[in-house]
Each structure stands twice: as C-alpha cells, then as structure tokens.
Amino acid sequence: MATSLSGDPLHWAKAYAHRHWLEDGLTDIVVGGYLVLYGILFELSQQKGLGLTLLFIAVVLILAWRMRAFIHYLKARWVYPRAGYMRPRRPSWEQRLVGSTVVLVVLVLLIVGLTTLGVPDWMLACGLTTAFFTAAFIWAGWRYRMWRYVVLAGLNALMLVWLVLAQPTNCRATYPLVTNGVLLLLAGTLTFVQFMQRHPLPQGDMT
C-alpha cells in the first residue's frame, strides 16, 4: 500500500476498500438482478392494478433493504476466503440525509426544468433514466478506476444519442432500467468468473 506522507493514506485506504467491495462483480450481479426484477414487476403492476402495485412496492422495498445482507452472504461463501474480509463503514445518518436531499432536489429541479422547456414525457422518463445511468457509471468508473463501469457509461451514452435521434415515443423508464440490469448482470458475471480464476482458494487457515 502506498502510504506516501505527501498524500492522505486514509483516502487511499477508502478507495482500496471500495475497490475490494466491487472487484468480484457480485454487487453488479445482485444490483443487475434487482433492476431486472424491478422493471418486470413495475410493468406488471401497471397492467394488473392496485393489488400488484402494492406487491411491487413491498417486494422492491424488502429487496432493497436486504440487498446488502444478501451480497455479504454471497461474499462470505466465495470471496472472503479468497481475498479477505472487510465490513465497509456505513455513512452516518446525517451524511445519508444530506446525500438523499441533494439527489432529490437535483432530480426535482431537472424534471421541473425539462418540463418547462417542453421536453416530451417519454423523453423525460426514458432519457432522464439513461442520463442518470450514464452519470452514475462515469462517476463509478472514475472514482474506483474500474473499466467495466466506463464501458457501461459509454453504452448508456450511445443509448442516449440513439434516443435523441430515433425519438421512440413509446419508450418507458423501465426499458433503460431493465437494459442496465441485464448489462450489469453480464458485466458482473464476467468479472466474477475472472475473479474466481485469479483468486484460487488458499490452503490452510483463514487467519
């Protein structure tokens, strides 16, 4: 580990912890699966009425709540014996509140601004979701120096260009959600296979 006194070792250690959490691809697989399931349930709830809408909300909330524990369970089985275990530090309530508020305010301002400019609904739903994924993957690729996120950001940027050019008026927000879910599933599976090949199970104790 580079602990140069000219830099802040804590920043390096935080980046290392984030990379360690993402390097095996399991998080991508779980989040990808969640997005696909979210898209399918959302579409079904739109067609089948209130009962399925409530089921959709319940399933989405419970899965989001238990997602971290599920990833931890998968990592305990395959990753920790090979690459070591760490439990990431959770942001404080204040940090989470500030982060959520900033995202919410930016989103509302963006929607209000685009609606005022006369951007059509399908573009708001489809284009804004694709733009969100593009920005999120660019941020993740830059922050964690992981090429698969840069590739995913590029694919989303291409989708955004296609949306602007082709203007598919029947495009719904769930389409980019499910597409990105499938992309994450594929990228995660590929990363996980590579991780397992590169990290054989060591012999002996786990200390």
Partner: peptide, 27 residues
C-alpha cells in the same frame, strides 16, 4: 512507522477486517 500507518489507515477506512484483507491492502 510506515507499516503501522498503513494498517491504521486501512482499518480507519472500514468497520472491521480480517488478516488476509490487511495483508493484501498493506502488502
């Protein structure tokens, strides 16, 4: 000391870690 600084920084960035993680992180 550089080695202990590396250990302290690694542990400061997480809640807890095992030996293998610390070994990989600190080298």
């Amino acid at each position: 000391a550089p080695a202990r600084l590396a250990i302290m920084a690694t542990l400061a960035a997480v809640d807890e870690a095992d030996f293998r993680y610390l070994q990989r992180a600190t080298g």
